[in-house]
Amino acid sequence: MPHLLRRPAGLSLRAVGRVVAVLGLFSAPALAADAVFPPAGSVGLVPPAGMTPSKAFAGFEHRSGASILITEMPAEAYGLLVEKFTPEALRASGFSAQRAGEALAVAGGEGRVLRGSQAANGVTYAKWVAVVRGGTGTGLVTVQVPETARGQVPDAAVEAALATIAFRAPGSLADQLAALPYTVGDLAGFRPVRTLMGNALMLTDGPKDVDPDGTQPMVVVAPSMGRAAVPEGQEGAFARRALATFREIKDVTITEESRAIRDGAVVVRLRAAGADAKTGRPMAVTQVIRFEGPNYLRVLGLARTDQPEALARAERVAASVAMR
């Protein structure tokens, strides 16, 4: 399931950390009381028959491989996302939209939705991407159904589910942290901003929760959500490929690479230099991935080159993460 293995299609890691969601158009929404919400989440819906809450991410899954991923962001992210909510902007992610985005009715809010398809790992998916705003937040709702499973999760059921998107008061940050599948023992001077997709955590060092210009150091902690095990001996190659997907910086050059065994797990650390993809400002990044069994946990740290201590602190965060 492609959207379970990386950030939402078309959004950079910074966009995920600083912006918000995608909406769509349907009939009268259901009452919030009818919707099912992820733990500590403020965006929910009534899932199609056969879909159940996922234990690996914020959303729902079906035995056929169909899934609904819910990502929450600050209210101010909505406008920034809607600006880029076009078939052309999302094409680079591999998402092929059938037509331009359409309005999506949301109780007490607004939204837009794109419908189309995307291929990943040899599987073609029917896909819906909706960005919605309501209450005090923004939500990105991404639905993927394998073409072979459209009889089990039909289009009409997906559209009906999107029509029930609802908002409630969000859980506290403490509630969100408690719902994560891991703990962070050392924040190393960073502060938690919010959780993403029910299993990722964004931290920053500075007063802004939303930082579109990338002036503050940022750390993102994200587990693999059930990906198949990386073959032994290929961890380094996997880490380099993963870093290449980091859209925050361009002209990336790896400056350091190390491999270690800690408590039976393989840990690969990369340091790299490059330029901010938006401003051209020199930037530095650290990536630490812990491989253990069929899972891995990835920690990314990004900072300006005049903030070198931020990378060392991000690596302290990585060393302190423990699965529950």
Results as ranks from 00 to 15, higher is better:
residue 149 A to F: 06
residue 307 Q to V: 10
residue 293 G to T: 02
residue 228 A to R: 10
residue 106 V to P: 02
residue 165 I to N: 05
residue 226 G to H: 05
residue 67 S to C: 13
residue 70 I to G: 08
residue 45 L to E: 04
residue 290 R to V: 13
residue 238 F to M: 02
residue 250 K to Q: 12
residue 318 A to Y: 08
residue 136 T to A: 15
residue 101 G to P: 01
residue 98 Q to K: 15
residue 309 E to R: 15
residue 200 A to P: 00
residue 311 L to Q: 15
residue 76 E to L: 14
residue 114 L to G: 09
residue 123 V to E: 09
residue 298 R to S: 15
residue 144 Q to A: 15
residue 92 A to Y: 01
residue 34 D to W: 01
residue 189 G to Y: 04
residue 111 G to Q: 06
residue 54 S to G: 07
residue 195 T to L: 00
residue 228 A to D: 13
residue 264 G to L: 00
residue 21 A to D: 05
residue 117 S to I: 03
residue 97 A to S: 11
residue 238 F to H: 11
residue 250 K to P: 00
residue 87 P to D: 07
residue 33 A to H: 02
residue 268 V to M: 01
residue 136 T to K: 14
residue 276 D to H: 09
residue 270 L to C: 09
residue 131 V to E: 08
residue 59 G to E: 00
residue 197 M to K: 10
residue 28 A to N: 04
residue 147 E to N: 13
residue 274 G to F: 05
residue 28 A to C: 02
residue 293 G to Y: 02
residue 169 A to S: 15
residue 301 G to Y: 07
residue 61 E to N: 12
residue 158 V to Y: 05
residue 23 L to H: 12
residue 38 P to Q: 04
residue 16 V to Y: 00
residue 222 A to P: 01
residue 192 P to I: 06
residue 220 V to I: 14
residue 125 Y to Q: 07
residue 97 A to W: 03
residue 3 H to L: 10
residue 6 R to K: 13
residue 316 R to M: 10
residue 82 V to Y: 10
residue 54 S to R: 02
residue 108 G to L: 04
residue 117 S to K: 14
residue 92 A to D: 04
residue 303 A to H: 08
residue 156 A to G: 05
residue 234 Q to R: 14
residue 71 T to Q: 09
residue 267 V to H: 03
residue 28 A to L: 11
residue 88 E to I: 02
residue 30 A to L: 06
residue 66 A to C: 08
residue 18 R to Y: 09
residue 199 N to L: 02
residue 103 A to Q: 10
residue 2 P to Y: 07
residue 99 R to H: 13
residue 167 F to G: 07
residue 283 M to F: 04
residue 255 T to H: 07
residue 264 G to T: 05
residue 16 V to S: 08
residue 70 I to D: 08
residue 279 T to K: 05
residue 73 M to V: 10
residue 185 G to S: 09
residue 18 R to T: 14
residue 179 A to K: 01
residue 278 K to I: 03
residue 290 R to D: 02
residue 235 E to G: 06
residue 31 L to H: 14
residue 3 H to G: 13
residue 281 R to C: 00
residue 176 Q to R: 10
residue 165 I to W: 05
residue 251 D to T: 08
